[in-house]
Amino acid sequence: MIKTVISTELPVDEHLLIRKNSISAGSGKKRVCVVTGTHGDELEGQYICYRIGSILQENLDCLDGTVEIYPALNPLGIDSITRGIPSFDLDMNRIFPGDPMGSMAENTAYNIIEDLKGADLVLDIHSSNIFLYEVPQVRINQLTAEKLVPLARYLNLDFLWVHEAATVLEATLAYSLNALNTPTLVVEMGVGMRITKSYGDQLVGGILNLLRHLGVWKGDVPEPPADHRTILSTGGTVEFINASASGVFIPLIRQSNQVEAGQSIGRIVDPLRGAVLQEVAVDQPGFVFTIRAYPVVYEGSLLARVYREDNA
């Protein structure tokens, strides 16, 4: 059933509509929410919403509970290829839990939280931005790791990154919901403005697996490949590799690569002079879970994130 969560009048003959598809069957009381589209340039979640919606609706006899799908928390952003809310300065994922007395965006954030809170699980799906390619991964604030890592494992993604807490992240949707005792997992995968179907299929399988664990899904679940393993970051360190030169980055690997010590992962070149400005290599062996997607870089632009096990 399609429900309108938020309807806000726009100046000329239109409403800003945030909608969800609420799919229920059986007698189960659990509610799982799949949300995406907070950032208007992140589209990987659209494929997930479509696939989960279609699988559940075609197999209602296997569903025991409620799954709610929110494809677009920021519909104006998605429609205008705008990362944030058009005409609003702040990142929508930095204004939660919102404010009922605040501006339109803050009011919207408040009402989104009101609609989601109390769910048994929320999956908040992101796809980096246009600059970076991410392997399918779950990001978990270390403050909630004990509770969320066991749940995240059911998603069968490639990487679970337990990251440090930061005050500025206290205004994210996931932090705000977790603070309200609504378990929320953040998925990052792929790249902005694109859909990576293979990653999407991997996550759809993981979501069904998680739903089965929660007792909400009794149907088939695709098995991950026999050699698949999920890397948990708590056994090692994450290294950020930033550009030392401004130029054009040419990647020499794809993400999801195991790299050796000294291996070149790309180079920054100067198209005007036909010169190499920086050879980008890793110091130690590791797992590249983020790689630069947008070629133009400035000094400091993030080129890669590499996970390295402590005993490597």
């Binding site: 931005n129 950020f240 930033n242 400035y298 000094e299 400091g300 632009s301």
Partner: peptide, 26 residues
């Protein structure tokens, strides 16, 4: 443009900055 031309990040949301970090952090 209002924000950093390349990636639309806001320098005034990057303090105290990080000399080894992203461009606007630097």
């Amino acid at each position: 443009k209002r924000f950093w031309a390349m990636d639309n990040t806001d320098i005034n949301r990057m303090f105290p900055g990080y000399a080894l970090g992203e461009t606007t952090q630097r």
